[in-house]
Design a protein around this nucleic acid. Sequence first.
DNA 1: TTAATGTTTGACAACTTTGTTAAACAAAGA
DNA 2: TCTTTGTTTAACAAAGTTGTCAAACATTAA
Lengths: 197, 197
Amino acid sequence: MPIKDKGTEQLIKDTAKKIFFADGKLHATTQDIADAAGVNRTLVHYYFRSRKLLFEQVTEEAMNELRQMMSDAFTGKQPFKEKLKKLINVFMDQTIAYPYRELFLITETNRYNQEHADQVHDTHTKPFLAEIKEEMDKGNIQVMDPRHYMMNLFALMAYPLLSANLSKSFMKISDHEYHKLMKQRKQLIFDMIYPAK
Amino acid sequence: MPIKDKGTEQLIKDTAKKIFFADGKLHATTQDIADAAGVNRTLVHYYFRSRKLLFEQVTEEAMNELRQMMSDAFTGKQPFKEKLKKLINVFMDQTIAYPYRELFLITETNRYNQEHADQVHDTHTKPFLAEIKEEMDKGNIQVMDPRHYMMNLFALMAYPLLSANLSKSFMKISDHEYHKLMKQRKQLIFDMIYPAK
DNA sequence: TTAATGTTTGACAACTTTGTTAAACAAAGA
DNA sequence: TCTTTGTTTAACAAAGTTGTCAAACATTAA
């Protein structure tokens, strides 16, 4: 009995992620994905049954990665400052590799009148917000609604990479220069969001 | 001779903008647009010749709006602080009305291997960056690469509205509450980016 | 009223994209 | 070897999307 080959299935999924999350080609067809993966398009249907199911699986896994990142960064007993550093480090690395991941999630939920958009089931955000609140009470960070603090953090991390092409055009920055700027942002964001006293 | 009717043409364009920029439905077809506008799909071709030309026109106008906003906010002799307030006010209002406008521009340029993505021809960004630099020299705002400052500003304004559905899910915020948070952000962003001494 | 011009519609053609099927192929156990 | 099971392919079918056309309709000038 032949071993069920995980190779091709994984290849298709990884290629789809590359096209959606890294290249930002949200309008890619199953043919585009198959071509990029170097396989026959029928295999997409063989492994995933339909385009929609492939999309759902990719979406689901991207959501899990997001949750996992939150969980990894915010469990354990290190001080808030260290957790924050870790979060920025991991999320920025992910966003550099996959700048359009959130964009994909957003457009996919917008696509079908956000029926099942609400069931996210994340258990780590609440403790995160609570820790932010504590840190404000301690006087370590600027006082505001912790939800604003969280939005600011993710905005500063995600948006410049998301809008890279637009920003490069407007500010006339070369690819090389832009990359250099992005590398500086981990530290810069930390300093903005957790200022030295 | 009948007057060339600008009504229907404008209606189609406005509807397209509503679907793309406000609803974030980037995969909308010409049929979707025609239905939403309540007109026959053939009219889309009558007025715009092809789907691609409609898209290009919508893209072009969105880019012009962005440039216009920069120009409006950054010409004149008011102090930097006032210009900044004005920019935040106008851009936030635009982004609340059209949260997905930039997202549309980004995905459309990603779609066709960014051939003509570079020709933005914006003349207001450079003076803007220069004014930021001046303000840093005066000690009024935190010293960093002015381009980072600009990216931070736009990130803080655009991202929370862009990712509203995602944020609402993760933080379990209702539509009503989210709207309230967004209204607070004009002031909050100004305070972050131009802190009182 | 009639002619001219612009607008709107439905029917149809062309093309693209998705999904299905049967057959060929490959690997491994009996 | 032969059978079984899983994998890959090409051909085809179905659906969706875009684009064209001729005819109907509306408005205004002559």
